[in-house]
Nucleic acid binder design. Structure first.
Lengths: 219, 219
DNA sequence: TTATTTTTAACGGTTTTCAGTGATGTAAAA
DNA sequence: TTTTACATCACTGAAAACCGTTAAAAATAA
């Protein structure tokens, strides 16, 4: 019997070990590798084989969405199940738009991951219960309140390296003047980056930026 | 042979299931229960028995430190191993001051949890490697730079309910004026709370508050 | 080599934050 | 009963954030 080969990417080794332990009792699933950073994922798949990638979207250093984007853009054909601590509508939508095959909130039960792997391997999509609920409620809201008109059309497009750099410094509680000195650029430039970040990420203020940064481990 | 009874508290069910799976191969350890919220922990221990509590410090709604504090204040004699996504010096110090027996960063390997349980059960303290490194570097810094004089003496004392309320709204990107309307209090009061939060949590500005809020799931 | 994206920069004006200081009522704890 | 902690409110001034708009280099991609 052919086993489904799975690769797990998450910055929490303890969670990886946990998932491996959960999957070890499954006859038809085999964990063939794991990565602790987004970068490692791409490297691993460049020289190894797996059927499914389980990807934690909240990984350090890089914009989590970016990893997923790169992975799919580089032509990898493997199915992707996204794991996330946060079940935010925006995030779910974006992930689906980019092309993930499944979405699991971390608060879901371990057995769901088995279901997800089997479903996705067989060409289906899989969403954990809380995600399904989110999507449904979004859908119903859409009927009434035209959920998040998204102002400019394309929010959430991934950030430029410089923007991520500025964002990281913002999240370290530096103000614009301090950031300008650290990066040797004008305060105006920093403020421009800041404004662009706020509009790109569709948040209201620095607080929104800080929260995005933490949730995406850009710290 | 008497088994070590363990209770796990974490808001990520998938992690709990993972840890259970990891521990299932251990002859002398038995997971006798789990909680998904801080509140449940206290309730569970009021009517059940366990030797060790594995507590995720980043749990929803309540100030994670608060749960630990309540647990120990209510006279529970069980050993506590704290799990955390973030290995911040401040947090580690506070947790140890309150009286936890072990501290594991989530990025550590699954086997560490077994070591931690055994060590703590036998009256020892246990810290995962990254935590040990943090503590060491803090210690060496102390010799040179008098690490965090903490200004007023007692930073990080846990927050009042009202402060947590304000903090939650700040983390939702409301500004002071909006919060004052939501809570039907004066802007000045909100600003006072905000200032107290900043000094209590020893952060620099709203960004620090937002980050604290996310890391403690006060969202 | 164009075309596009990214990074850089500026200006003027409004709003908000933040630090400092001080004050009052209330409720619980010592 | 007297602290102590909590929530409430006020005023000031400087600093920072925020908004809108514009636009030129520089780097990259088509």
């Amino acid at each position: 019997m052919k086993k489904i080969k799975v690769h797990i990417a998450d910055d929490h080794k303890i969670l990886i070990d946990g998932i491996i332990a959960v999957l070890s009792s499954e006859e038809n699933i085999e964990v063939v590798g794991y990565s602790l950073t987004g970068k490692d994922v791409l490297n691993w798949f460049a020289s190894n084989e797996a059927d499914i990638l389980i990807l934690d979207i909240n990984m350090p250093k890089v914009d989590g969405i970016g990893v997923l984007q790169n992975f799919l853009e580089q032509g990898f054909q493997q199915k992707v199940i996204v794991l996330s601590s946060y079940d935010e509508t925006k995030l779910i939508k974006e992930v689906l738009k980019i092309g993930a095959n499944g979405f699991l909130a971390k608060k879901c039960a371990g057995e769901n991951i088995v279901e997800a792997i089997n479903a996705v391997y067989n060409g289906k999509q899989y969403f954990s219960k809380s995600i399904q609920e989110k999507l449904l409620s979004t859908f119903t809201k859409q009927l009434t309140k035209s959920d998040l008109p998204s102002q400019d059309g394309s929010f959430f497009s991934s950030l430029t390296p410089r923007e991520i750099e500025v964002l990281r410094l913002i999240a370290k509680q530096y103000n614009s003047k301090e950031i300008s000195k650290l990066l040797h650029i004008s305060v105006n430039t920093v403020e421009t980056h800041r404004k662009n970040l706020i509009s790109k990420l569709n948040v209201k203020n620095v607080v929104g930026l800080a929260i995005y940064a933490v949730k995406n481990n850009i710290v």
